[in-house]
């Protein structure tokens, strides 16, 4: 009796610092944020400003703002392409580095390295590649001349810019997801493959019927990670395209590659409307939670237990 009570005290004592930090930097700001989203708060010293309740105004204004709606749609499209691209690439890379090729450890490190570079820097590096290096190639070799034509600049075209975001996102994130796949692939029992091989199953059949079901657990994790990360994409967006090039939506000129996170940021800090930015962030949070729960549930169904 005495022992368990002591244990409990020690348990909470050890947990206290983390719990405190979690409360202060996650839970409290989260609820404060929800509170602010119903007010006109702007953190400035405007005369007659201050804090007043304005009900759902921030939410209704957000949902009728073309740039927010556009960002919503764009983020869904971007996420769909990005999740597919990252998972296909990283799974292929994982298969490659778990096969018997020479120097696979070097490949593993190489593919993982981009993940160690910060997204902002990476965005600027790729911006330089798209704006200077690729046209530079066109100038250097005659047969690549179209690349130097400013009409074909990748970041000057809306659709191409979205694909550029996907390309950079994949380049950055595929190595990380690859590591999860590698771990999963290496835990697939060799006996299963051997048995199947004796029964005459080829590479494709074994991949489809043994490898993929056996790593379904990893798919649950990677799909979740890539989904959430694509949805929250911000740093590469800021540094690579800065929201441009512009386009028209619902008759209003808006930024053409402004993903949700960037839209929230711009609402809060460019438009000086912190409370509305907070409201948008809250909508974003709800949508993200719903999507992640649905995704995890559906993926879980496909997992196979041995």
């Amino acid at each position: 009796m005495e022992k368990t009570r002591e244990n409990r005290i020690v348990f909470w004592l050890f947990l206290a610092p983390v719990l405190f930090a979690f409360l202060m930097v996650v839970v409290v700001p989260f609820f404060m944020g929800i509170f602010y989203s119903f007010t006109s708060w702007s953190s400035s010293a405007r005369v007659g400003g201050g804090l007043s309740f304005i009900g759902l105004t921030n939410f209704t204004e957000s949902l009728t703002d073309p740039s927010f709606l556009y960002s919503f749609i764009l983020t869904f499209i971007y996420t769909a392409i990005n999740v597919l691209a990252i998972n296909i690439v990283s799974f292929a890379l994982a298969l490659l580095v778990t096969s018997a090729i020479k120097g696979r450890n070097i490949y593993r490190v190489g593919f993982f390295l981009p993940n160690l570079i910060g997204g902002l820097i990476l965005g600027y590096v790729w911006q330089f590649i798209f704006n200077n290096a690729i046209p530079g190639l066109g100038k250097a070799w005659a047969f690549l001349a179209p690349l130097a034509n400013p009409d074909y600049l990748i970041l000057a075209d809306r659709n191409a810019s979205v694909l550029a975001l996907v390309l950079v996102g994949t380049w950055q994130y595929a190595g990380y997801i690859m590591m999860i796949y590698v771990a999963a692939l290496e835990s697939v029992p060799v006996e299963l493959h051997e048995a199947a091989r004796i029964d005459g199953a080829g590479g494709w059949l074994r991949l489809k019927n043994i490898t993929i079901p056996m790593v379904a657990q990893a798919f649950t994790i990677t799909m979740f990670l890539t989904l959430v990360n694509s949805f929250k994409q911000f740093d590469v967006n800021v540094s690579l395209t800065a929201g441009g090039p512009s386009t028209m939506f619902l008759g209003k000129p808006i930024f053409g590659t402004e993903l949700l996170a960037l839209d929230i940021y711009n609402t809060a800090f460019l438009a000086n409307n912190l409370a509305q930015g907070q409201a948008r962030a809250f909508i974003f949070f709800i949508v993200l939670v719903v999507i992640s729960i649905v995704q995890v549930r559906t993926s879980k169904k496909r997992e196979v237990e041995l």
């Binding site: 740039s67 000057a156 075209d157 441009g244 090039p245 512009s246 386009t247 028209m248 000129p253 808006i254 930024f255 711009n266 460019l270 438009a271 000086n272 409307n273």
Partner: peptide
Amino acid sequence: FSGEFRDQTLAPIYNQFANGA
């Protein structure tokens, strides 16, 4: 003019004109 008007409303118009859109 407010920063929002210049950055969020006017800037995209100039950008589209520059792109030839």
